[in-house]
Simulated scan of single mutants.
Amino acid sequence: MRGKAKGFTLIEVLIAGSIMFIVLVMVTDSFLTARNSARHADNIIAMLQPLPLVKADIQQQLQQSPGQPATGQGTFGQVTFQWRAEKTAAAAPKPRFELESGTSTLFAERFYLYQVELTLAVADQQKILTYTELIWRQGPGVPQ
């Protein structure tokens, strides 16, 4: 009779190899997903960094012609943007009552509410943001 064999059988080696292969595939998939998520997050951060400057630019352009629809586009660093704004509401200041004369002063429209759609793009990603913006005509209220 033969003595007891030392080592692993072929089936044990195949099972161990299969388990190792499955673990390797899972780790690789997790790594690739994490890398893609990090790249996506970096692009979103890069896209949103100049947002305060873009909003200030939009406010300035809307302030120049209050009450009118407006569009624009531009570039800040590697971020390109396009926007359009539509007036959704307009209002005048409340009438002012003069106690001495007993009359009311009515004012023309001075406050404008816009719906702004802003499209930001960087690399191969694009994000559309929608928000409302309040603009008012500068200077004293203009009586009607």
Rank of each mutant, 00 (worst) to 15 (best):
A90C: 08
T75N: 14
Q49G: 13
T130A: 13
F81T: 01
V54S: 00
D57Y: 04
I44Y: 05
E12S: 05
G74Q: 01
T119R: 06
G17S: 15
F8Y: 14
S37K: 15
Q61K: 08
M26T: 05
T130D: 12
D42A: 15
A70M: 02
I15K: 04
D29S: 14
K127Q: 08
A41W: 13
G139S: 02
A108L: 11
T71S: 06
F31V: 13
N43L: 15
P66T: 00
M20A: 15
G17N: 09
G139I: 00
A89C: 07
T105F: 04
P93C: 07
P52Y: 03
L24K: 00
E12F: 06
L32G: 02
W83R: 01
Y131R: 03
L51Q: 05
K55R: 15
L32P: 03
L53F: 09
R2P: 05
V122T: 06
T28P: 06
T75E: 14
M20E: 08
W83Y: 05
L106V: 14
F97H: 10
E133A: 07
K55W: 12
L120D: 00
Q126Y: 10
Q63R: 12
F111V: 06
F97D: 07
G139H: 00
A85P: 02
F21L: 07
Q49M: 14
R2N: 13
S37Q: 15
A91G: 10
I58A: 00
L10F: 12
Q73W: 12
Q78H: 14
V116P: 01
T28Y: 09
G74W: 02
K87I: 07
I44D: 05
T9F: 10
M20C: 15
F81Q: 00
T33W: 11
D57S: 06
I58T: 00
T88G: 06
E98T: 13
S104L: 07
F111M: 06
I22F: 11
